[in-house]
Amino acid sequence: MGLMFKDETYRGDFTFYNSPEAIRHFPFPFHEDKYMYAVNIEPHAPGPKGSAYEFPIDVDEHYVADMKDRAIVLAEDPLRCQSLPHMITAEWDLVELLMTSMSEAYPEHFTLTRNGDAWHWINRPLGIDDEFTFGDTSTLRYPPMEYITRQCQGDFCLLDQRDGDLWMDSGMVTSQADWSLDFDIGMSFKEWHAPVPLAHEVGIFDRALKFLLAMQIGRPVRRLNWTMTINPRLDTSPENYHKWGTDRTTVTPENVGDKVHLRVELQALWRLPRSNAIVFSIRGYLIKMREVATIPKWSRRLHRVLKTLPPELAAYKGLTRYQQMTIDWLAKHDDGAPTTPGVWPE
């Protein structure tokens, strides 16, 4: 059975919501009742059926709306998609990875036919049917990375590997949590992570970099990151911070359940074969506090995580203004009962 794609918005009237299936699909990030920044990298192996980990590239009921929102962002600000010239081989590697993965996991929605370099791609949800020559940019309507990431949920960065470091030299970034591709493009691994507090001191980035440099073809890895967002807004970019920043002051005890969202990033990384680059995908998932509360274990745990969050992290994630109100709202959904280990609902 195919997915039912919803008609919904991430701006203006904010009609986004999760169906009960989408709530159970949500990659809840907290495996215990407290949180501290950690490398927490694990193999990107297939997860349980119906979970966000079932397939390497996850497509869900928000697919069409996500792609519509991306197109709006790009129309307003084309600099959200940029690629340095030496990344063209990596761009084609990404086309291959995403088309292969999406068509294998969701054959009812996507079809890829390859005959040597003559490729035929059908994307039914978006009404796309294109024949092109793999490796020949002139045969696509956009450059290769832009072409395929206009059709794939989540942000994507291509990291070039040189001199024992990784360089953010390419990206499609329209739904980021407060970082700017236009500013960060060309930076090394530690440079673009510079604004992250606490983690540098404990050597997290040294270990993560060494691990990523040794990544092998066919052995993708993933980690989760999280923050909170007011309103179901995908484009929480610094570029538009002066437009959405006031959202953070609109939270009241009455509207916490609908306005405050947990935003989880499923970050997956693959070694790309012919460019030796790494693709770093950042897939964002949003869930309302009211939706969290439908899974008793999750609301208990999120309440405890927010109560014990180090203040530096709360400030970095921009939660300070509404953290207490959210804690108070969640407290009504935390009876103090112990929670079971792991992220899955009980």
Binding site: H86, M87, T89, D160, Q161, R162, Q216, G218, N276
Partner: peptide, 12 residues
């Protein structure tokens, strides 16, 4: 083993 590249082309 699966291929590993420690001598990559510098495409710049």
């Amino acid at each position: 083993t699966s291929p590993i590249n420690l001598f990559p082309i510098d495409r710049r």
